[in-house]
């Protein structure tokens, strides 16, 4: 079997396997898998509203996935995407309501603020890793908690003890009446365009620039890179900061698009952690991340429709979606099986 065909077959078979096992789980719990999957399908593509909401859900996943993938490509585990996303969210929301500017300046400024906030939040673990060899996993995890509580406290301070910040001005909003009108008032916003641009930026940065080459080299082998005359420490810090910028922009999507403000968070949003899976599903390639985010966002938003239309409890839905993702992620097993099968056939011939 040619390599090209395996590449197409593997994900298809994995999704199919996930669907089958998910169906078994649903029927064992006494629900109709057919109704369930119809509801899932409708929740993703059913009508313009659901499609709009699905795309909205995909947007922050793209950024979170890019952030994790970028760090992975440079040999770093950025588990702190969640925290960087939250500070980016707050920064964008603040700029969104505190300033009054024309749209053409306001949106870029809010995005910039989110990028800077996310970048700064990732700068700390990068610096500690580069200068003191502190493992970035520990630091980024802890920075998540710091972000959560600092942001909650900041919201209280900024809003005089209230639960949430003011709504951003219209001039900073990524939403548009046009998108609302074509999607029956879904919360779809222009952030998806920003996200797709980010995918290209990451691709260009890693594949087409010297800096990207250096970053990847450091990821492959630090000693060799140092021997080749690269500044390893600087590259580690830079990689973390760029990763944090992607994460911060993901937060900006929530601030300027989905919510229009930030409310006190009762816990992590989960987007940052899902970003790890998105990145791995996408094999840490920018365009792979895009596909991974589409799968994650679709399942998340489509899953919401399963209790709504088929009466399947949220808990079962979570199991089913997790199964689908599980099988997609274990595509390697299917790839190996396929290769074995085709080898056998060749031998028989």
């Amino acid at each position: 079997m040619s390599k090209h065909m395996t590449n197409i077959l593997v994900p298809l078979i994995s999704i199919l396997l996930g669907l089958i096992v998910g169906a078994i789980v649903m029927s064992l719990s006494g629900f109709s898998p057919i109704d369930g999957y119809i509801a899932l399908w409708n929740g993703v593509f059913g009508d313009s509203y659901n499609l709009g909401e699905t795309i909205r859900q995909i947007t922050p996943y793209i950024f979170a996935g890019l952030a994790v993938a970028f760090a992975f490509r440079t040999g770093l585990f950025n588990i702190g995407v969640e925290g960087q996303l939250i500070v980016g969210w707050l920064a964008a929301a603040y700029v969104g309501y505190a300033f009054d500017l024309p749209k053409i300046i306001h949106i870029p400024l809010a995005l910039l603020a989110a990028a800077v906030a996310g970048g700064l939040w990732a700068f700390v673990p990068g610096l500690l890793k580069a200068k003191l060899q502190v493992h970035e996993v520990i630091v980024t995890i802890m920075m998540n908690y710091i972000a959560l509580h600092v942001v909650n406290a900041s919201i209280a301070t900024l809003s005089d003890g209230a639960e949430k910040t003011e709504k951003i001005h219209e001039s900073a909003s990524l939403r548009s009446p046009f998108l609302e009108s074509i999607t029956d008032y879904s919360r779809l916003h222009w952030g998806i365009i920003v996200a797709i641009i980010a995918v290209f930026v990451m691709w260009f940065l890693l594949e087409k620039t010297t800096r990207g080459f250096e970053l990847k080299a450091v990821g492959f082998n630090q000693d060799a890179s140092e021997y080749a005359g690269m500044n390893v420490g600087k590259n580690i810090i830079l990689a973390m900061v760029i990763s944090g910028i992607f994460a911060g922009l993901g937060g900006a999507m929530e601030a300027l698009g989905t919510f229009g403000n930030i409310s006190k968070l009762t816990g992590f949003t989960g987007i940052g952690f899902d970003g790890i899976a998105v990145a791995l599903l996408g094999a840490n390639q920018p365009f792979g991340v895009l596909l991974g985010a589409i799968l994650f966002g679709s399942l998340k938003n489509g899953g919401l429709n399963m209790p709504n239309e088929a009466g399947i409890p949220m808990e079962i839905v979570s199991i089913v979606t997790a199964l689908i993702i599980f099988f997609v992620a274990s595509g390697y097993i299917i790839r190996v099986t396929l290769e074995r099968l085709s080898k056998k056939k060749k031998e028989e011939k």
Binding site: E53, R187, F259, L304, N308
Partner: peptide
């Protein structure tokens, strides 16, 4: 169920709008 009474659970803040809209629709 439809035409009677029903609920939808929200698992994150971003679900509120979707769930409200789902029931209204």
């Amino acid at each position: 169920g439809n035409g009677g009474y029903d609920y939808l659970q929200s698992s994150s803040e971003s679900d509120y709008n979707t769930n409200l809209n789902s029931l209204i629709r």
